[in-house]
Simulated assay, not measured.
Amino acid sequence: MEIRPILASLRRHRIPATLIVLEIALACAVLCNAVFMIGQRIADIRWPNAIDEQGISVVTVNGTDPRLAASDIPRDLAALRGIAGVTAAAAATSMPLDQNPALSDFTTAPDGKTTVNTSIYFLGSGGEQALGLRLLAGRFFNADEYADSGTRDFNSTGHVVLITQSDARRLWPGQSALGRNLYTNDRSWTVVGVVADVLAQDPRFSGPGGRHSSVFFPLHPDAVMGDYVLRSAPRDRARVLREATQALGKLEPGAVVQGVTYAGMRGDYFANTRSMAWMLVLVCVVMLAVTAFGIVGLTSFWVGQRRRQIGIRRAVGATRGHIMQYFQTENFLLGTAGVVLGMVLAFGINLYLMQRYEIARMPWYYLPASAVALWMLGPALRAAAVPPVVATRSV
Score class of each variant (00 low, 15 high):
R237A: 13
E243D: 15
A196N: 14
D167S: 04
A137R: 02
G112S: 03
N142V: 08
Y146I: 14
G226L: 12
R242Y: 05
F217S: 01
A147H: 05
G207E: 09
P221N: 09
A196Q: 15
P203L: 06
Y146H: 12
L162Q: 04
V215N: 04
V215P: 14
N142G: 15
L182D: 11
A168I: 05
R169L: 07
V161W: 02
S176C: 01
T164W: 00
G158A: 14
V194Y: 02
F141K: 07
S166G: 06
H159Q: 10
R187H: 15
Q175S: 06
S188I: 06
N155S: 00
R235V: 15
D222N: 15
A168G: 02
A223H: 05
N185K: 03
Y183S: 04
S149F: 13
S214W: 12
R239E: 09
A130H: 05
E243S: 05
H220V: 09
S188P: 10
G174M: 02
R139S: 15
A200T: 11
S156F: 03
Q165P: 04
R134K: 14
D148M: 04
G126F: 07
R239I: 13
R242A: 15
G193E: 07
A238L: 06
V160E: 13
V191F: 06
T118M: 10
F216G: 14
V229T: 04
A244H: 06
S232V: 02
L133T: 11
N155H: 00
A223S: 06
D236M: 04
V191S: 08
L199S: 09
G179C: 13
V160S: 15
S156D: 02
S119W: 00
L178M: 13
